[in-house]
Design a protein around this nucleic acid. Structure first.
Length: 432
RNA sequence: GGCCCCAUCGUCUAGCCUGGCCUAGGACACCAGAUUCUCAUUCUGGCGACAGGGGUUCGAAUCCCCUUGGGGCUACCA
C-alpha cells in the first residue's frame, strides 16, 4: 500500500513549486490507490503562522488535492523526537554538546540511493558533518524529525524536490540508527523561472493564490503543472485529472528541471475555458465582474450565460473578461480613442449609424438574425459594405472595435440601450 | 571552493535505458496565409534544437570520458 505525504511549513503562502510537489504526491497516491497525507512542519515557532496554514490548505483544496487524514503537526511531537534522541544517546550513538544532541557521522562510507527518478546516486559520508538531532533550545532538527515522522507515518515513497537530494544520505543515516526500513525516494527536478533562475517574486506571481485571483481555472493550473516534468506517452496536452491519474507514474518523471512558462499556462487555461459550459463558468465570471466594479446582479442568468458563451473564447483568463464586456453592464465603459476617431467622428459614419438606428426604430422586433438582415439590406440599398455600418455601430454601442459579433451584442443589450447609444453617437435623436 | 543533479527548437517535451525506422516528431510562443463585421476562434503553412570536444562502433541525439553551461546543497531554516 502506497503512502505518500506533502509536508509544507506554514511560513508563507503555497508556492507554485510546492504545489507541484504536492500534486505529484497526490497523483501517485491516486494512481496506486494509496494514501495522501499532510504533515505540517511547524518546528520553527517564530516563523509559523496559522493563517499561512489555512491559506495552504485552502489552496490545496482549490486545486482538488484532497488528503486522507487530519494533518500531523510536528510542533505537537517534540516529546517524541526528544525521546528518540535520548534513546540514541543511551545507546552511545549520539552525544551531547551543551543542550544539543548530535549524531556523529562515520567517515569512509558510501551511501547509495536508488532514486525513482534519477536512478543510482552515491554520496560519501566524508562530506557529511555531524548532524544535529536536537537543537540547544530543545527543538528537533529537520532531518531528524523528518525521518522519525516519515517512518512513524509509514511513508512508503518520499516524493519531494531535488533540493532535498543532499539531505537524503543524512536521513538514511538516521533511518539506519533508528533501525527503520527505508522508503523509496523520488526527487523531482525543480521548477525554475522563465530565465532559469529560482522561481521567485521577481518572475511575477509565485503563489497558487495569485493564479487563482488572476483568473486561472484550477484544472488548468493542475494540467500545466503536470506537464512540467511528465507527459502521457502520446501527444495530448489537454488532460483531465482522471486521465492523468490513470496514466501517471513517478518513474516516468523527467529528471531535467523545467522553466515555468506563463504563455503555455495561459493557452491551457483558454482551452479549458473554451470547453467549459457557461453554467460552470457563471460564478467565476460573475465574481470577476463584481471585482472589477460592475454590478451583474440585475442581469438575468440566461443573458449572463449568453455573454459568457460569447466571450469565453476571447479571453485567456477570467480576469480579462470585465474590461472586454463592461459595456453590457454599465454605461460607464471606456471608449477607445483610435476607434472613435475612425468610426465615430467622420460624418459619413455618423450617418450610417443614424440610418441603421432609424431602421431599427421602425422595425417591430429585435433579434440578432433580423438585425443582420436589416443591416445588410441597408448596405445593399446604399451601396455600402456591411462593414461600414457594422464597425461604427459596434463602436457606438460598446466603445471598442473588438469583441463579439455585433448583432449578438445588440440583441443582448436590448433595443432601448442600443438605440440610446446609437443616437448619442450619431448626434441625432436627442437622447443624451 | 567542495559534493550532488542536469544538458534535444526561445519554452514544455517525444526519441535515449534496449545504438540504425531521426533528412530529430508534437505543443506553446512567434511570423505568414485562408475564413470572418472587428477581435477571438478555426484551418493551412513557415521559422526553429541533438551545448562543445574526444572516444567506442560498420553506424551515436542515443553508450563512455573531458570541457563548458545551468541548478541544488554545503545552518542548532525547513
Amino acid at each position: 500500500m502506497v503512502r505518500v505525504r506533502f509536508a509544507p511549513s506554514p511560513t508563507g503562502f503555497l508556492h507554485l513549486g510546492s504545489a507541484r510537489t504536492a500534486l505529484f504526491n497526490w497523483l501517485y497516491a491516486k494512481h496506486t490507490g494509496g494514501t495522501f497525507l499532510l504533515r505540517v512542519e511547524d518546528t520553527d515557532k517564530n516563523r509559523s503562522e496559522t493563517r499561512f496554514l489555512e491559506e495552504i490548505l485552502h489552496d490545496l483544496k482549490w486545486m482538488g488535492l484532497d488528503w486522507d487524514k487530519d494533518p500531523v503537526f510536528q510542533s505537537e511531537r517534540f516529546d517524541i523526537y526528544r525521546k528518540k534522541a535520548e534513546e540514541l544517546l543511551e545507546q552511545g550513538r549520539a552525544y551531547r554538546e551543551g543542550e544539543a544532541v548530535i549524531f556523529p557521522v562515520p567517515d569512509g562510507r558510501v551511501i547509495e540511493v536508488e532514486d525513482a527518478v534519477h536512478g543510482k546516486i552515491s554520496f560519501r559520508t566524508d562530506e557529511i558533518k555531524p548532524q544535529v538531532m536536537i537543537k540547544s533550545d530543545g527543538s528537533p532538527a529537520y532531518n531528524f524529525c523528518c525521518v522519525i515522522d516519515d517512518s512513524e507515518m509509514e511513508i512508503t515513497h518520499i516524493i519531494r524536490g531535488d533540493d532535498h537530494l543532499s539531505n537524503t544520505p543524512k536521513q538514511i543515516l538516521f533511518y539506519e540508527a533508528l533501525e527503520k526500513p527505508l522508503p523509496v525516494f523520488a526527487h523531482i527536478p525543480l521548477m525554475m523561472g522563465a530565465d532559469g533562475a529560482k522561481l521567485s517574486k521577481r518572475h511575477g506571481a509565485v503563489s497558487v493564490e495569485e493564479y487563482r485571483r488572476e483568473g486561472y481555472l484550477p484544472e488548468a493550473l493542475v494540467n500545466y503543472l503536470t506537464l512540467l516534468g511528465w507527459n502521457p506517452k502520446d501527444e495530448r496536452e489537454i488532460l483531465s485529472v482522471d486521465e492523468t491519474i490513470k496514466l501517471f507514474d513517478i518513474r516516468d518523471m523527467s529528471d531535467v528541471q523545467s522553466r515555468f512558462d506563463t504563455a503555455k499556462l495561459r493557452w491551457i487555461n483558454s482551452e479549458r475555458l473554451k470547453t467549459s459550459s457557461s453554467s460552470d463558468l457563471l460564478p467565476l465570471f460573475t465574481e470577476s465582474l463584481r471585482e472589477a466594479g460592475y454590478d451583474p446582479g440585475k442581469m438575468s442568468e440566461t443573458k449572463l450565460r449568453r455573454i459568457i458563451e460569447l466571450y469565453k473564447v476571447r479571453v485567456k483568463t477570467v480576469r480579462e473578461f470585465p474590461p472586454l464586456a463592461g459595456s453590457f453592464f454599465s454605461d460607464e465603459y471606456e471608449i477607445e480613442e483610435k476607434g472613435a476617431r475612425k468610426y465615430l467622428e467622420p460624418e459619413e459614419m455618423k450617418a450610417n449609424i443614424a440610418h441603421f438606428a432609424s431602421e431599427i426604430e421602425r422595425h417591430e422586433t429585435f433579434s440578432a438574425a433580423e438585425l443582420e438582415e436589416l443591416c445588410r439590406r441597408i448596405a445593399e440599398k446604399e451601396n455600402l459594405k456591411p462593414a461600414e455600418i457594422i464597425h461604427p455601430t459596434r463602436m457606438a454601442i460598446s466603445g471598442t472595435t473588438r469583441g463579439a459579433g455585433l448583432f449578438d451584442m445588440m440583441e443582448i443589450l436590448g433595443k432601448e440601450k442600443v438605440l440610446e447609444r446609437m443616437n448619442r453617437a450619431s448626434g441625432s435623436g436627442g437622447h443624451v
